[in-house]
Simulated scan of single mutants.
Amino acid sequence: MPNNFANPIKELTASIKEIANKNYSQRVHFMNHNEFGDLAKSFNTMAEKLQEYNNSNLYKLSFEKKRLETLINNMHDPIVGLDNQGLILFANDEALKIIGLKTEEVIGKLTATLALTNDLMKSLIVSDFQNESRKALPMKIFADGKESYFEKEIVNITIKPTGEDQTIDIGNVIILRNITVILGLDDANPVTSILPIECNKRIILLIFRLSRIDLILRDIC
């Protein structure tokens, strides 16, 4: 094949692969005023529109991510989200505080790995996913210089893929609700104190979206 045909085709093929890999800044530059020149112009217009769309959605996803981060970090209940392989997708500030680890030491790590050196993480995951009630006995945790009691609840997260009839399991959210006041063991707060409002399913689903947004952002960037 003559070079005046082979080279443009080769360049266009390489550029299409770049677009497929989400490199929307890719452009082709054919100087000829022929079919290849028209093709290059159409390709560049398409790439420019894809880049604009990508940047717009990236901003929206970033904004939503920050909003949900603020939401979970303002909750008084420690919350940890796991995917269906036990990978930690998110943990709010309260959870990190009682676990005794930093964000970078927890997010993206397998619970089974952390449980080898962290007793609390081991207590969070041991055998509870086989518990039909999805609840465990109160946990005694020492944090912030005092002893507190927590009731653990595991919320299973499922989705129904488009066009499918059955739901699939995509992970779990672990909620630790402080029940020290209920047990009358908190001297600073009498038993009559008002307890934090229980997290509802809608909030749990919003929280889990945070992990999905994080995965999308990592894939785009």
Rank of each mutant, 00 (worst) to 15 (best):
34 N>V: 12
17 K>V: 10
16 I>G: 00
37 G>L: 03
45 T>R: 02
58 L>N: 07
37 G>A: 08
49 K>S: 07
48 E>F: 08
54 N>Q: 01
47 A>E: 07
7 N>S: 15
35 E>N: 12
37 G>S: 11
26 Q>R: 05
35 E>Q: 12
57 N>I: 09
40 A>R: 02
9 I>Y: 05
34 N>L: 12
11 E>I: 00
12 L>K: 06
17 K>T: 12
42 S>R: 11
42 S>Q: 12
26 Q>T: 03
41 K>D: 13
56 S>Y: 02
29 H>Y: 12
6 A>C: 14
6 A>K: 12
12 L>N: 03
49 K>Q: 10
22 K>S: 00
23 N>H: 00
46 M>Q: 11
21 N>G: 12
6 A>T: 15
47 A>S: 00
15 S>A: 04
32 N>S: 15
6 A>M: 13
47 A>G: 00
55 N>T: 10
37 G>Y: 03
30 F>N: 13
29 H>T: 14
26 Q>H: 02
16 I>F: 10
36 F>A: 05
30 F>I: 13
46 M>D: 06
58 L>M: 08
24 Y>I: 02
50 L>H: 03
31 M>F: 11
27 R>G: 02
49 K>M: 10
49 K>A: 05
16 I>A: 10
39 L>W: 01
47 A>H: 02
32 N>W: 00
48 E>C: 01
34 N>E: 14
19 I>L: 04
38 D>R: 08
31 M>C: 13
49 K>L: 08
42 S>H: 10
16 I>R: 07
32 N>G: 14
7 N>H: 15
39 L>F: 05
32 N>T: 15
43 F>G: 03
37 G>M: 06
12 L>H: 05
12 L>C: 09
59 Y>W: 08
51 Q>I: 06
14 A>V: 04
59 Y>Q: 10
6 A>Q: 14
9 I>D: 10
18 E>Q: 15
27 R>K: 06
30 F>Y: 11
30 F>H: 11
52 E>A: 12
9 I>S: 11
11 E>M: 01
20 A>H: 14
11 E>F: 04
22 K>A: 05
45 T>A: 06
46 M>W: 06
13 T>C: 10
40 A>N: 03
15 S>F: 04
44 N>Y: 01
56 S>Q: 10
7 N>F: 15
23 N>R: 07
